Computed example of a mutant assay.
Amino acid sequence: MSIEDRLSALGLSLPDAPAPAANYVPFVRSGDLLHVSGQISQDENGLIKGKLGDTVSVEDGAAAARRCALSLLAQVRAACEGDLSRLIRVVKLTGFVNSTPDFTDQPKVINGASDLLVEVLGDAGRHARSAVSAGSLPLGVAVEIDGVFEIR
């Protein structure tokens, strides 16, 4: 089953690849590795904002991380000129969680992205990962995730 078919079977679709908001590029390819810039939490209603440990629950944070994962895949699709079959595997994610100083469930939040990538890609979605706290994130979003992907 293709990645697009798997997404469809899960009732998911990829957004358009978000444009950079500052002086950087959305992705850089080096050899077989594709480094995708941080994707912020947003959905069809706009930015998903808030602070974990205060205004955002762990469950809502995980849902925001899932949206980041979809944006990461959208950037991979753009880098591969629309051909997601060129994606070999997810290598590494770094997840940033906008959270209070006493919040310690960053891994549970970023699991939203990790779980989605495994649902969609199977073993090719398993990856190394960091999940860290941030005192704030751009535009007040709840989650930002960047990634490294192996492509053909």
Score class of each variant (00 low, 15 high):
M1I: 10
M1Q: 08
S2D: 13
E4W: 01
L7G: 01
G11A: 01
G11T: 01
L12D: 01
L14W: 05
P15L: 10
D16G: 09
D16V: 11
D16R: 12
A19T: 10
A21R: 07
A21N: 07
A22D: 12
A22I: 05
Y24K: 06
V25M: 04
F27V: 14
V28L: 09
V28P: 00
V28S: 07
R29Q: 15
R29N: 08
S30Q: 11
G31V: 07
D32E: 14
L33R: 14
L34C: 12
H35Q: 14
V36Q: 11
V36G: 12
G38L: 12
Q39D: 13
Q39T: 13
I40G: 15
I40Y: 11
I40P: 03
I40D: 11
S41G: 11
Q42M: 15
D43A: 08
G46K: 14
L47S: 10
I48N: 03
I48M: 14
I48T: 05
K49L: 14
G50D: 04
G50M: 02
L52Q: 12
L52T: 11
D54I: 07
V58H: 06
V58P: 03
E59S: 13
D60E: 14
G61Q: 05
A62E: 01
A65R: 01
A65G: 03
C68Y: 09
C68F: 09
A69C: 02
A69K: 04
A69D: 02
L70F: 02
S71T: 11
A74F: 04
A74R: 03
V76T: 08
R77S: 13
R77E: 11
A78F: 06
C80G: 05
E81G: 03
D83T: 06
L84I: 12
S85C: 06
S85P: 00
S85Y: 02
R86L: 13
R86Q: 15
R86V: 09
V90E: 05
K92A: 15
G95Q: 06
V97I: 15
V97R: 07
V97E: 07
N98R: 09
S99L: 11
F103R: 08
F103P: 09
Q106S: 14
Q106Y: 06
K108S: 15
V109G: 02
V109Y: 05
V109P: 01
V109M: 02
I110A: 02
N111I: 12
G112S: 01
A113F: 02
A113E: 02
D115A: 13
L116D: 00
L117F: 00
L117C: 02
E119A: 05
E119M: 01
V120N: 00
L121E: 02
G122I: 02
A124S: 09
R126L: 10
H127I: 04
A128C: 04
A128W: 00
S130T: 14
S130I: 07
A131S: 12
V132M: 09
A134L: 04
A134G: 04
L137M: 06
L139I: 08
L139T: 05
L139N: 08
G140K: 05
V141D: 11
A142V: 04
A142E: 03
E144P: 00
I145K: 07
D146Q: 11
D146Y: 06
G147F: 09
V148F: 06
V148P: 05
F149A: 12
F149C: 13
E150Q: 14
I151N: 13
I151P: 06
I151R: 10
I151E: 08
R152C: 08
